[in-house]
Computed example of a mutant assay.
Amino acid sequence: MSMTDVLAAADIKNAVGAFAAADSFNHKKFFELVGLKKKSVDDVKKVFHILDQDRSGFIEEDELKLVLKGFTPDGRALSDKETKTLLAAGDKDGDGKIGVDEFTTLVAES
């Protein structure tokens, strides 16, 4: 499964392009622009599983750093600061990673 199975290619391109500059990433705005906020919980979980590259059941810090690349190969890597901010926003139980329920909550809160 790819992101374009869940989200529109044009929305992905626009959302990733909006945060092309370093230290500009805002997850709330990104999830809105990419169309994820309007999707069902099942679709949000599909996106989670695409981003969970190692299939561990969690999105760890190294996977978060590449979150934009998870949506499109043209995406940039997040800076360390952006990665830590995203992790802090999503990691509700403090275990240093984002589980599927934490991810759906993060998207819903956006």
Rank of each mutant, 00 (worst) to 15 (best):
K29I: 15
K13N: 10
E60F: 10
Q53W: 11
G99Y: 03
K92S: 05
D5P: 05
A22G: 12
G70P: 07
E109I: 03
R55T: 14
D43Q: 11
D93R: 02
K37E: 10
G94V: 04
K92V: 02
K45W: 09
K65E: 13
F58H: 05
K28I: 05
K29W: 13
G94L: 04
F31S: 10
F19L: 04
D91C: 10
I12E: 00
N14G: 10
I12G: 01
E82K: 07
A9Y: 11
D62Y: 10
A108I: 01
L33C: 12
V107M: 01
D80W: 10
K97W: 04
K92P: 01
K92F: 09
S2I: 08
L33I: 11
Q53R: 14
I59A: 09
D43E: 15
A21H: 09
K84H: 13
I59W: 02
D54L: 09
L68Y: 03
K38G: 07
A77K: 12
I50D: 14
S56H: 10
D101Q: 05
A10S: 13
L36C: 01
A9W: 02
Q53I: 12
V41S: 06
F58T: 14
G99D: 15
A10N: 09
D52Y: 15
F25G: 11
K28E: 14
T72G: 07
L106H: 00
S56T: 15
A9Q: 13
D23I: 15
L66E: 10
D91Y: 05
F30N: 06
L66Q: 14
E32D: 07
E60K: 09
D62I: 09
F58D: 10
T83A: 06
E61W: 11
S79L: 04
S56C: 04
V100Y: 00
K65C: 05
H49I: 09
S56M: 06
F30S: 02
A22S: 15
G17I: 02
D80M: 05
F31D: 01
L66S: 11
A20P: 08
D5N: 13
T83H: 04
D11F: 07
R55C: 11
E61Y: 12
I12M: 04
L51F: 08
F71G: 11
T72D: 09
V41I: 14
E63A: 11
K39R: 14
H49M: 10
V6I: 15
S40Y: 07
T104N: 07
T72C: 07
F71S: 02
A108S: 12
V100K: 03
N26L: 09
D52I: 08
P73C: 01
L86V: 14
L51P: 13
A9I: 07
A88H: 11
L106Q: 02
G35K: 01
L64C: 12
G94P: 12
A89P: 06
A18G: 15
T105C: 03
I50V: 14
S2P: 05
D101P: 00
K84Y: 04
D101G: 02
G57Y: 08
D80T: 11
D52K: 07
L36Q: 01
F19E: 05
G96P: 08
V44S: 01
